[in-house]
């Protein structure tokens, strides 16, 4: 009975960060295979971030061309775009495809109020579809889930002993 209680307590503790904030960011592209020089709409769907930020990294040659956020909440250079988030549920930005090139758009997000952060699943993009394959990178804030799973395994093993 004591072991069951311990297991319950451990699961509760591991679950706390998740309860405190269920933030997440997902990225969708209007197309992963744009024509040379065309504009791609990149939409970030944001869940439950009241005060946060996103950094997006573009593949070489792709150029940031504007976003749905006010200008004072965006900083962009050649390959990196930073967004300050205040309660947005989505942000759309535009990138212009180069003559040729491909790679991954990668990103990170921060929820400053809930003090958590994570990565955004990488999106492959290639001019005329060159180099576009299935994505392989896993999304964000897995550490707590991994720890929970480990805790469960250890305790279950203990029970068997």
């Amino acid at each position: 009975m004591r072991k069951v209680l311990t297991l319950f307590l451990c699961i509760c503790l591991v679950g706390l960060p998740t309860l405190a904030g269920a933030a997440d960011v997902e990225r969708t592209l209007s197309t992963p295979a744009p024509a040379d020089g065309s504009v791609v709409d990149v939409t970030l769907s944001i869940e439950e971030i009241a005060a946060g930020g996103v950094i997006e990294h573009l593949p070489p040659g792709f150029v940031f061309a504007g976003s749905s956020l006010p200008a004072n909440r965006v900083e962009a250079n050649e390959s990196r775009i930073c967004f300050a988030l205040l309660n947005e549920t989505s942000v759309t930005y535009q990138i212009v495809a180069p003559e040729k090139g491909n790679g991954e758009i990668t990103g990170e997000w921060y929820d400053f109020i809930n003090q958590i952060n994570g990565t955004i699943q990488a999106s492959r993009i290639g001019v005329d579809g060159v180099g576009v394959t299935e994505t392989t990178t896993s999304p964000g804030p897995a550490p707590t889930l991994i720890i929970a799973a480990l805790a469960g395994l250890i305790i279950a093993r203990g029970r068997r002993e």
Binding site: V14, L16, L19, A20, I154, I155, G158
Partner: peptide, 19 residues
């Protein structure tokens, strides 16, 4: 071992509880 595990989890959870 159970106590150690509990302490580790407590430390991991602390930032969230404090926020």
């Amino acid at each position: 071992r159970t106590l150690a595990l509990f302490i580790v989890l407590l430390v991991l959870a602390a930032p969230a509880a404090a926020l």
